[in-house]
Design a protein around this nucleic acid. Structure first.
Length: 548
RNA sequence: GCGCCUGUAGCUCAGUCGGAUAGAGCACCUGCCUUCUAAGCAGGUUGUCGCUGGUUCGAUUCCAGCCAGGCGCGCCA
């Protein structure tokens, strides 16, 4: 879908190229032209600084360059005025009725408005959370549960084929300790050193014993508790509206021979060597600060060996790009994972992308809730949802970039005021739904057959249309930068613009006033806005209520 | 010591192909509901964009160095 702004930018690009071909300008034409929405409304609907960029090569001052292009831009379809301002900005004002045709585009597009094809044909593997199945999901996992799922939705909207994947760390010492801990608890014995504590272990022990009478060995306990705990994680994530296409077991990686296969591939690429009785991967060739052990001196495989094989496995399953979402305590993995990609013969700048999420702090009652496993003050995903609900939790976690540490204030999230941005956005949606209910009750004709774009010339209408037009761009950028928070911020802006429109532009007829085409036009504009808010919230996995 | 992230209003934070007077919410004042959801709108107050240099028509944005804070640097998983 190409937006009005895209078409305009392409046309201007053509004009610039033509001017250069004619010899009016010197230099080379830019590949594309950026049209931005000026913050100041006096600067038109769109602005470009192209004249300032061209000036130097052209050997003219920027205002001259702008003047040269002015008349031609003004003659483009849909443009009503072109002004030159400041050092040489070209400010473009669009024809309002023409702009209002966007309502048709949105309503025709329905829930696909905003979708694009910038990542069309790209297969992306998106791995997030990947917790050990040895306990409930906690706050750190929760940030990824929200952001990861939202990112997946955004990438799909940009046309990518996305596999959302959860890597189950079901192998190794932690699992054994887990089994021993549950066993000890069930049998009333002391929990082993470094074992798992907490009430949930007691609960697991009870369930496991009830379901498996006569269970004895720690291996049996491990397997039974693993099953219960994994099911619990899956069920909690499902209520959180976070879905996975693949639950990938680390064990299966070993059982299927994928680890040997991965190792073989790395050997072929020539980055594997032996030293001190161990087998290493020379990751320092590609920016890691030290080489990494694949097979220990005692013959055991390292966790890193699994990671490496897993990456190769993902790529061989047809994924072009592997995105990893890791906690801040894993940021040391960035270099080594990129090096793994490079060792496998891939381009680390394209085939792999590691996102690091900073920590989440919780405030409640004006104080920081200290999180400690030992003290049992871990906040789980389940508890957070109980406190604030799915929508508020998801929305708040998503609206910040992941590389900033964030603070969640439970008290604010519980409040139904506009301190709580999720309500601000949802309220706009519910408000429109209410207006449209009234529209339908009053028998005001809606539908695009009754839509007259030339009615929508009010400043507020124009501002709303301009904001609606930005949505596809926001989605594409969020996908490109892997930053779903941009969608949330956009929705807050859109909600604000709608509320302003609502305050100044009456949709329903007043008193005895007969329904006229302005009412139909505004009703359709409302419907278009509601559609965009719904589409945006859907990208975040947050509900769009019709009543509040 | 090395590496990753952060430093923008009193508070919580936005701000990427470098652009015009740096934004939003909260907080604090002032207005607006006998007809659309006031969970709303309009207006006012608030800044050495951590510091110092560099690149250039122009830097909160890019580069270098420094300061401050968070986190991490196992043949652990």
């Amino acid at each position: 879908m190409s937006t009005l702004a895209d078409q305009l930018a392409a046309s201007i690009q053509g004009l610039v190229a033509a001017a250069i071909a004619r010899g009016d300008l010197a230099g080379t034409a830019p590949e594309s032209i950026v049209l931005e929405r000026p913050k100041n409304r006096d600067h038109g609907d769109y602005a470009t600084s192209i004249a300032l960029q061209l000036a130097k090569a052209a050997g003219k001052n920027p205002r001259e360059v702008a003047t040269l292009l002015q008349a031609e831009i003004a003659s483009l379809a849909g443009v009503s005025a072109v002004d030159i301002a400041g050092p040489g900005f070209i400010n473009i004002t669009l024809d309002r009725a023409n702009q209002a045709e966007l309502v048709r585009t949105i309503l025709d597009g329905g829930d696909t408005y905003g979708h694009g094809d910038s990542l069309k044909g790209v297969a992306i593997n998106l791995e997030f959370i990947s917790a050990n199945p040895t306990g409930p999901l906690h706050l750190g996992h929760t940030r990824w549960a929200a952001v990861g799922d939202a990112l997946g939705r955004v990438l799909k909207a940009a046309g990518a084929k996305v596999t959302q994947e959860f890597y189950i760390n079901d192998r190794g010492r932690q699992m054994d300790l887990f089994g021993q801990s549950v066993q000890a608890t069930a049998l009333g014995k002391p929990i082993p050193e470094d074992g798992y504590q907490g009430d949930y272990i007691k609960d697991l022990a009870k369930i496991v014993v009830a379901e498996n009478p006569g269970i004895k060995s720690s291996e049996e306990f491990r397997e039974a508790a693993y099953k219960v705990q994994l099911t619990q994680q899956q069920s909690v994530l499902s209520t959180f509206h976070t879905t996975f296409d693949v639950w990938f077991s680390e064990r299966s990686l070993h059982e299927s021979g994928a680890v040997e296969h991965g190792m073989e591939k790395l050997r072929e690429q020539g980055h594997v060597f032996e030293q001190d009785g161990a087998v290493w991967l020379r990751t320092t060739d590609f920016g890691d600060d030290k080489d990494r052990v694949l097979i220990k001196e005692n013959g055991e495989l390292t966790y890193f060996a699994s990671d490496t094989a897993y990456y190769i496995n993902k790529r061989e399953r047809g994924n072009d790009i592997c995105i990893y979402m890791l906690g801040a305590d894993h940021h040391g993995y960035i270099h080594r994972l990129r090096a793994v990609a490079a060792c496998a013969g891939d381009n680390p700048d394209y085939n792999i992308h590691v996102l690091i999420g900073q920590l989440v702090k919780i405030m409640e009652g004006g104080e920081e809730v200290k999180l400690s496993k030992r003290a049992g003050t871990i906040i789980t995903l389940e508890e957070l949802v109980e406190k604030v609900g799915v929508d508020a939790a998801r929305y708040t976690l998503i609206r910040y970039p992941v590389d900033t540490p964030m603070v969640m204030d439970i008290d604010i999230l519980r409040s139904n005021t506009n301190e709580n941005p999720v309500y601000y956005v949802q309220y706009a949606h519910a408000r429109i739904a209410a207006v449209l209910r009234n529209v339908s009750e009053l028998g005001i004709p809606t539908g695009l057959d009754n839509f007259d774009a030339s009615q929508l010339t009010h400043d507020r209408e124009n501002e709303l249309l301009g904001t609606l037009a930005e949505f596809p761009r926001v989605v594409a950028q969020a996908a490109e930068l892997r930053e779903p928070h941009r969608v949330a911020r956009y929705l807050e802006e859109l909600a604000g613009v709608y509320h302003g429109f609502y305050a100044d532009c009456r949709v329903l007829p007043l008193g005895d006033e007969a329904p006229a085409s302005i009412h139909s036009a505004r009703a359709n504009l409302c419907a278009a806005t509601m559609q965009v808010i719904a589409n945006g919230l859907s990208l975040l996995g947050v509900s769009a209520p019709e009543r509040m």
